[in-house]
């Protein structure tokens, strides 16, 4: 089995006619980028009138994992997930030596992930869709084993479909904790019924897409804040498109529970609140904020200490080995 490099994969999706075998007549979907997880590089492709997620193995254990998933999915002839396939020697990486890499494809029922869609959707409707997804997996007697808002897409009817099926195993029950987390996630991030009466689309668009002259890039909305990149760096705007944190940071994370990690142009990290106030001043090598506990692990000169939600240090500075750090 030959493993693909990401550069070769990028070349293949840009030139499928010469670099792919079965999928030579496929083409890269509009605005589809190449991204990676630990095991696979992936890209959306259009092939035979349908959207597909096309994967290249970029680690040794990738295909082994895909083979197990394909084994569990191959019997699902009545479900779209049954179309998950390994294509042997699909990506021609070296035509001179005749070297090719395996690839994996699966149908993509929709483009928008739950992570992207949740902010504009009705929580009770999503709960119903989530329950139907659970029943679907139960009927098929499989576990996805990697369900998360980023690995579920939402179709135009509001139905949820799992994607990135590489961890699927036969037997239902492996996703129970994930379903609980998803329920909490929906409760926290989706709109309640009253909220749905207000159309937030315009505000969202104003924040994320309608300021091309000022913003080079805009992310998704989290907690009424959209991460944007201007010429001076990263900052945040609110749902009305007003700048609440000037674009002065080299990097910034999205807001979770009212806090976002930031990094300045001297590589110093800190933590800000939704108004841009520096809760932990950007003076440190690493700030790892945990939204579940509200605490942050902070590193300076190879020593670590924990800070509370208000930005107060609550432990001594210690070597990492002496700290109970789960990062």
């Amino acid at each position: 089995m030959n493993i693909c490099t990401i550069v070769d994969f990028r070349g293949a999706v840009d030139d499928p006619g010469r670099r792919l075998r079965h999928m030579a007549d496929a083409r890269r979907a509009a605005e589809a980028g190449v991204c990676r997880s630990t095991l696979f590089a992936e890209c959306r492709m259009e092939w035979r009138g349908q959207l597909w997620l096309f994967y290249a193995p970029i680690a040794l254990r990738s295909i082994e994992r895909a083979e197990r998933a394909a084994m569990a999915l191959r019997r699902l002839t009545s479900d779209p997930m049954g179309a998950y396939r390994i294509l042997r020697d699909e990506i021609v990486t070296d035509p001179v030596a005749g070297v090719a890499s395996d690839a994996v494809v699966e149908p993509l029922p929709a483009v928008q992930t739950l992570l992207q869609a949740v902010a504009g959707m009705d929580a009770s409707r999503l709960d119903g869709s989530l329950e139907r997804l659970r029943r679907r997996l139960q009927c098929l007697d499989i576990s996805h084993n990697n369900l998360s808002p980023d690995n579920i897409v939402v179709d135009t009817a509001g139905e949820l479909h799992p994607i990135r099926l590489h961890y699927v195993t036969q037997g239902f029950g492996g996703d129970e904790e994930a379903f609980e987390r998803l329920e909490s996630y929906i409760a926290e991030h989706a709109l309640d019924a009253a909220g749905c009466l207000h159309d937030t689309t315009a505000a969202y668009r104003a924040a994320s897409g309608c300021r091309p002259a000022e913003w080079l890039w805009a992310g998704n909305m989290f907690e009424d804040r959209v991460r944007v990149r201007g010429r001076g760096g990263y900052g945040f705007v609110d749902g009305d498109g007003r700048t609440v944190v000037k674009p002065i940071y080299f990097w910034a994370d999205d807001f979770r529970e009212g806090r976002a990690a930031v990094q300045d142009f001297d590589s110093r990290m800190g933590l800000i609140d939704k108004n841009g106030r520096e809760i932990i001043a950007p003076l440190y090598d690493i700030v790892e904020y945990d939204a579940d506990t509200g605490r942050s692990w902070v590193s300076l000169d190879s020593l670590w200490a924990q800070f509370d939600y208000a930005g107060c240090r609550i432990t001594d500075w210690l070597p990492r080995e002496e700290c109970d750090i789960e990062l």
Partner: peptide, 9 residues
């Protein structure tokens, strides 16, 4: 980057 095997929830 193996610690992000699963997508961040």
């Amino acid at each position: 980057g193996s610690r992000s095997v699963n997508n961040i929830f």
